[in-house]
């Protein structure tokens, strides 16, 4: 069996597409349709590994870099499974997260602490909390499932050289840190180009822009540069993908508490 233990991994995860709630002005189900189409186009990727850098900046211009690898496995009919492994900073090298994400149920999540060799289940309610001190929340990193939001199509709008659908989406999970998201999805390939996040009070919180899309397996588009800017704190985080691979031979056996202990 081909098991590239330490290669890279995938995060296939980031595309919160928005859209339609029953109580809102009727969009004829168009928002949900757009979300489903984007989801449909992204099905069948199987497994992937990614190598990335996360650069954190505060309002004073100080920065700090993390090096991360992820492995992901598509699960039909449920949320995906993923392993996230830290290579830097060096004091947390080998620290890893295992996540079984679910559409509506809370995710199952464990952390491996290499100094103690301890695998510890962690509370899944931290989804609104920052991922490793960055401007990405855990929920921003989680796999996209259509059922996680309700949707409303708003309008068409130019986005760069493309034309985008602008779709509003509402998290179904009351533990989400957001009341709504505004998402720009290009009409050519249904790629998320931008997301505006609104906090629990409805105020603008963050903007994510996704760039440097590349196509894999002649089908799946992945952004290689993501910029998250927090409008309230002035902090920002860049997520730069150095490598993404598909069909790496990962299977269910690579996503359990045992594999978490030996991922490094």
């Amino acid at each position: 069996m081909n098991r590239p233990l330490l290669s890279l991994a995938a995060i296939l995860l980031l595309l919160p597409l928005p859209a339609a709630a029953a109580t809102l002005p009727d969009d004829g189900g168009r928002g949900l349709e757009i979300a489903r189409e984007a989801d449909r186009r992204d099905q069948g990727w199987g497994d992937s590994e990614s190598v990335m850098r996360m650069i954190l900046r505060n309002a004073h211009g100080d920065s700090s870099e993390r090096k991360i690898r992820t492995r992901a496995l598509e699960v039909q009919g449920d949320g995906d499974k993923s392993l996230t492994i830290f290579d830097e900073p060096r004091d947390v090298q080998g620290t890893a997260f295992l996540t079984f994400s679910h559409a509506l149920e809370p995710d199952d999540q464990w952390i491996f602490l290499p100094a103690l060799k301890r695998v510890k289940r962690i509370s899944s309610r931290n989804k609104s909390g920052p991922f490793m001190g960055s401007e990405f929340a855990y929920e921003d990193m989680a796999s996209f499932e259509v059922e996680k939001y309700s949707y409303r199509y708003l309008r068409d709008e130019p986005c760069g050289e493309l034309t985008c659908f602008v779709v509003e989406s509402y998290p179904q999970d009351k533990n989400s840190g957001y009341t709504r998201l505004l998402t720009w999805i290009d009409q050519a390939e249904y790629r998320t180009q931008r997301i505006d996040y609104f906090d629990r009070k409805g105020a603008p919180l963050k903007t994510l822009t996704l760039a440097d899309y590349q196509q894999y397996l002649d089908r799946y588009w992945r952004p290689h540069r993501l910029e998250m800017v927090n409008h309230q704190s002035g902090k920002s985080t860049s997520l730069l993908f150095d490598q993404i691979r598909f069909n790496t031979g990962l299977s269910d056996d690579d996503f359990n508490k045992n594999s978490l202990k030996r991922v490094k």
Partner: peptide
Amino acid sequence: TSPLSHAASTQLSGY
């Protein structure tokens, strides 16, 4: 050509 600098097959680390 993989730029996998932080996933080398042999690594020395510690404190």
